[in-house]
């Protein structure tokens, strides 16, 4: 086996690392989404829970909703808006200015150079962004529980933590890679198929966001149902 120096290895991997960093940096906004989703969800639920005298369950409610459903879907939608459009416009611009043809002419496969790193980066980073978004959502719920409802912070976290079982976490973490794959492939597809100059790039960008968002919601419905059938606890 041929050994390569650390610097050569780093050069080979630099493209993916750049993609990861850019994706993470661009997606910071999705973390705020997580926080305010948890915040509003706790606020809206508090009224109903109070009527049944179950306000102490607010941690459990926020926790299950964020981890199983809201965290993955909303993070996916936010990243779709940010990255499917970014990928489509970047590749679309390269397409209409013949840069992708130039790449092929120079002996490089655009599939390996442009598309594969974007798919790997989006799939990989969306898992971590979802975890952070879930935590931010729980934190948002905690702020409501403590500041507006006067609940004990320890009680909130205990309820949130103890309500989660392994299947909830698996369900919540199986969705992000699927959504990440959808976001990146849809963005690449519309970008690579851009035609008609700058107008075509604009059209591709819009179509990529719409298609990725609809596909995420559609896939979420199907995947949720399939996972519920798979995990005994949900049957």
């Amino acid at each position: 086996m041929e050994l390569i120096s650390p610097s050569e290895f780093a050069k080979e991997k630099v493209l993916s690392v750049q993609e990861y960093c850019l994706l993470a940096a661009r997606s910071v906004a999705s973390l705020f989404t997580g926080f305010f989703t948890g915040f509003v969800f706790a606020l809206q639920s508090a009224n109903s829970l109070q009527r049944f005298g179950s306000l102490s369950f607010i941690g459990e409610l926020v926790s299950l909703s964020m981890v199983r459903e809201l965290g993955p879907v909303l993070t996916g939608l936010m990243v779709a808006g940010r990255n499917a459009s970014g990928i489509a416009s970047e590749l679309g611009s390269m397409m209409v200015t013949e840069q992708i043809d130039a790449m092929r002419a120079l002996g490089t496969d655009p599939l390996k150079k442009l598309i594969a790193p974007r798919i790997v980066a989006t799939v990989f980073m969306l898992i971590f962004l979802t975890i952070i978004s879930d935590l931010m959502g729980l934190f948002g719920g905690m702020v409501v529980a403590r500041v507006l409802l006067g609940l004990d912070v320890r009680e909130y976290w205990t309820s949130a933590w103890e309500s989660l079982v392994r299947d909830d976490v698996i369900m919540g973490l199986l969705k992000p890679p699927i959504f990440g794959f959808i976001i990146a492939t849809v963005g690449c597809f519309y970008g690579i198929n851009s035609r008609g100059g700058t107008q075509g790039v604009g059209r591709a960008t819009t179509q990529a966001v719409v298609a990725a968002s609809v596909l995420i919601l559609l896939t979420d419905a199907v995947v949720t149902r399939l996972l519920m059938l798979t995990f005994a606890g949900y049957r």
Binding site: T97, E98, Q99, D101, A102, A105, L106, G107, D109
Partner: peptide, 23 residues
């Protein structure tokens, strides 16, 4: 096939209409 063309393209140079330099 596209994969086999890459080898041949290394023996050809092309100057595109709008230069097509990587921004």
């Amino acid at each position: 096939r596209e994969q086999d063309l890459f080898e041949l393209r290394r023996r050809i140079g092309m100057v595109f209409q709008e230069s097509a330099l990587f921004d």
